[in-house]
Simulated assay, not measured.
Amino acid sequence: MKYIVFILFTVLTNAIAQLMLKQGMMTMGPLTFTLETAVARIFQVVFNPWIFAGIVLFVASLASHLFVLSKVELSFAYPFLSLAYVVVVVFGYFIFAEDLNAWRIAGIGFICLGTILVARSGTDTKDVRPQNTAQLSALHEGAGE
């Protein structure tokens, strides 16, 4: 649990980036592309302030996730990213008036339960780097199968 703050930072920045992208696309309206306007339209989308901020936040989330992956096992860190879905659903309900029905609430409950089980597994302190060349060779051989 030593790196949980970084994991949660990754989750929150990922979720907030999604919300920013949604807000940006809502301000853009439905997208239509023609061959003549495709490049200009792509630039309009990318440089929309909300979308641009969302992309920047995704980069911050990616940097944080890379740091986390250098410290903990992938099988420990990655399941936490599902919490971004929980954050997006809750904020989508309050900010964008999106549907929050019993099925989604049940799904959120299962996601939270699964994340708690992964967190309690306690494998976040294991050093993820191979300690010697034999371990490194075993990793490469396993990847080639």
Rank of each mutant, 00 (worst) to 15 (best):
L21Q: 08
Q23V: 07
G24P: 07
G24N: 10
G24T: 05
M25I: 02
M26N: 14
M28R: 12
F33Q: 11
T37M: 10
A38Y: 14
R41K: 15
I42C: 13
F43V: 07
F43L: 12
Q44M: 13
Q44K: 09
W50L: 05
W50A: 09
I51F: 05
F52V: 03
F52K: 05
A53M: 08
G54C: 01
S61T: 03
L62C: 06
H65A: 13
H65K: 06
L66D: 11
F67G: 05
F67C: 06
V68R: 02
V68H: 01
S70Y: 08
S70E: 10
V72I: 04
L74K: 06
S75K: 03
Y78N: 06
P79W: 02
F80A: 03
F80N: 03
L81K: 09
S82G: 08
S82T: 12
Y85K: 11
V86K: 04
V87E: 04
V88K: 05
V88L: 08
V88D: 11
V90E: 01
V90F: 07
F91Y: 04
Y93M: 07
I95K: 02
I95P: 05
A97L: 13
A97I: 10
D99F: 11
L100M: 11
L100E: 04
L100Q: 03
A102V: 12
W103Q: 13
A106C: 06
A106Y: 03
A106R: 02
I108T: 09
C112P: 02
G114R: 00
T115W: 01
V118A: 00
R120L: 15
R120S: 09
T123K: 14
T123W: 10
T125K: 12
